[in-house]
Computed example of a mutant assay.
Amino acid sequence: MQRPRFELPEALVMEILSKLPVKSLTRFNCVCKRYDGKTFHTYFSQLSTEKDQNYIVKQNIHLPLFKNDVPCVYGASHGLLCLHDSSTDKAAIWNPSTREFKILPPSSVQRPSYLPCIKGYRTLNDVSFHHIAFGFDSKTDDYKVIRFVTLTFDISEEGEIYRDFEFPDVLQVELYSLRSDSWKEIPFPNYKPTYIILGNNYIDGISYWQTITGEYDGFREIILSFDLRNEKFSILSIPEFVGYSPKYYISLLVFNGSLSVIFYLSKETYTSLDLWVTNDGVWTKQFSIKSIPPFVHPLGFGENGKLLLISSKKEIFLVDPSTQELKELEIMTYQDHFLLSISLHAYVESLRNI
């Protein structure tokens, strides 16, 4: 005898599913597409504080992407990661929880193939992409990717082609909308980001980059920001005493949901760090860390305000500012990877569709 079939209301089904762990739901996903062994790979080390354990590596995710290109992670938002290969225009948004993967379309922004000049004309030699950021626009319920584009030209004169550094590169800014699934060009700001270190300096719909202003001995560090909601650039100053000097290093990080600046001096025997946090443009010194290993770079903050650092040897350290306690983490960073391609992002499991 056939049992009667009961159908639950969709609202009740969604409520039940929402209470299940993502892993329980994704057990029924199957990926059958395979890649050959000649592809480059991106690796992810997942850190966890579950069961009151301190930053345990749960797994290393080995992900072949983009065939012969090498993408890096340029941001995380609501469980989605943005991947991009800076040497090409290839970009993607990926949900590791559901394994859903969306390749972004090529840009439709016009790029001149040549430009006239006094010596003849300049031909387009190279297009590179950098200072990529990814975030969520709550105003339009849309995910957006912003990237800076550099067009490099060569001089073509009497059959010869050569580089003339008197001619500046042509700069563009492109913005991608997931909702429209398209790119558009936006006006280039008066400043351009100056550092290529990866990170996810995105807070509440605003992305941040380091830049400088002034000339010669009047250089000064400032912060360039971009609001994804109104699609406008702005400038923010940093703590007054921090100037521009080759002796010091500055990194932008997110600390407890606020924009922060780490100001550090690295010597052969030790490194000292000072953290400043801004609230409505007012900077307050949060803490100092003394005598940690030399030649380290801040990666970002984990739970409880603990700072993760990476050394020139690609060792990962965790330091507690309140106790000054330093601990090396057992994380494989893959020695063949370029140091600046290693980044830290806050990630949460998500069932969001792309």
Rank of each mutant, 00 (worst) to 15 (best):
M332W: 09
D227Y: 01
A11W: 07
E174D: 11
H62V: 15
E157K: 13
R147E: 13
Q335K: 15
Y195E: 01
S45K: 01
G159S: 12
E231N: 03
K267I: 02
K38Y: 12
E15N: 11
D89T: 08
I354T: 05
V170F: 09
G214L: 02
P189R: 01
N304R: 09
Y162V: 13
I206K: 04
L171G: 01
I196H: 08
V149L: 11
L318R: 05
D280K: 13
L351G: 02
I316G: 02
S107R: 02
V109G: 06
P112G: 05
L299A: 07
I342S: 05
T152R: 13
K144D: 12
S45D: 02
K119E: 12
K33T: 15
L351V: 01
T88W: 06
Y162S: 14
K313F: 09
S341T: 15
R34M: 02
T152D: 10
T39A: 02
Y270P: 01
D154A: 04
W94N: 07
D137N: 15
Y248S: 06
S234V: 00
A133M: 10
I61P: 00
R352N: 09
R147M: 05
L273R: 07
L326M: 08
I16F: 05
L178K: 05
Y176V: 05
K33P: 03
H131E: 08
P71T: 11
S251E: 08
L124A: 12
I206D: 03
P294S: 03
I61W: 12
R3T: 05
W209N: 08
D169L: 02
G75K: 13
I203A: 03
T269W: 10
F165D: 13
V13I: 10
G159N: 07
L104K: 06
L228Y: 15
D141P: 03
F129M: 11
R27G: 00
Q286S: 15
H297G: 00
F165Y: 12
D89G: 12
Y264K: 02
G135L: 14
E166R: 14
M332T: 14
Y55D: 01
S225Y: 00
P189A: 00
V31Y: 06
T333V: 07
N353L: 10
V242C: 05
R99L: 13
Q286Y: 12
P187E: 03
Y334Q: 09
V173C: 14
S24T: 06
V22D: 09
W94G: 03
V254I: 04
I331R: 09
T150H: 04
L25P: 01
E185D: 07
N29A: 04
T123I: 15
I146W: 07
V149E: 10
S312P: 02
Y114A: 07
F44I: 15
F295P: 00
V145E: 12
E15C: 08
K327D: 04
Y202K: 06
P239H: 08
D137S: 13
H345N: 15
V31P: 00
P246Y: 12
Y208E: 09
Q210W: 00
F219G: 08
R27E: 08
E160I: 06
I197C: 04
